[in-house]
Simulated assay, not measured.
Amino acid sequence: MVELYVVRHGETSTNKELRINGSITDQPLNENGIAQAENLKNIINISKFDAIYSSPLRRALKTAEILNQGFHNINKDSRLVETNYGSWDGIKLEPAKKKHPDAIDEHNLVTDKYVNYAENGETYEHVYLRISEFMSDMTNLGDKKVLVVCHGFVQRAFFKVVTNIPDIVNVLQPDNLGVSKYITDELGNYNLVYYSRINNID
């Protein structure tokens, strides 16, 4: 059985400015994002984890480095990068929502319709595929406790892959440094324990 703890990175300037924060927008953590990661570092006990995986993007990798405290080698995995929003990467949400209301929902989250307007945007189905592949690899680790640092939509994609929820619009954005816990077994079964907690991480 693998216990998988999936963490969203700390805050960036583009998060604060309500911009679309994809894989092209490789922003560092801001001061608040660093403080968020430091706070979670004091809540979790990294010495009880067997491995840590991270998206190679700066905001995720810095979050992972703070949480890791030099304890493990950080496994950088490109399957964990945020969605590539193409020409929409880095743009402000509000103007995009006014121009293309079907592409931004009432929670200010980008819907799968955005690919109708953004050049070279990655489909959500492709994100689900790479997260499914990552989860499949996790089932082969044996009895391990694993920390995964990734991104907002990617964490929502984990939820969709595990629960098979029909529409990701029903999965809200996790908080920065929100932790979701999943349990996998060698048969490839996944179970959600909790989603986007910032306290009571067990």
Rank of each mutant, 00 (worst) to 15 (best):
E94D: 08
P95T: 10
P95R: 10
A96D: 01
K97D: 03
K98E: 15
P101Q: 08
E106A: 09
H107F: 08
L109A: 12
D112R: 11
K113F: 04
Y114L: 10
Y114P: 01
Y117A: 05
Y117D: 05
E119A: 09
E122Q: 05
T123V: 05
E125A: 14
V127L: 15
Y128G: 07
R130T: 06
R130Y: 07
R130P: 06
S132V: 06
S132E: 15
F134D: 11
S136Y: 14
D137N: 15
D137W: 13
T139E: 09
N140W: 01
N140R: 13
G142E: 10
D143W: 05
V146E: 04
L147Y: 06
C150G: 14
F153S: 07
Q155E: 15
R156L: 05
A157R: 00
F159D: 05
F159I: 14
K160S: 07
K160V: 12
V161E: 07
T163A: 01
P166Q: 12
D167G: 04
N170A: 15
N170W: 14
Q173H: 11
D175M: 12
D175A: 12
L177E: 03
L177Q: 02
V179S: 02
V179Y: 02
S180V: 08
K181T: 02
K181C: 08
T184W: 00
T184D: 03
D185A: 05
E186V: 10
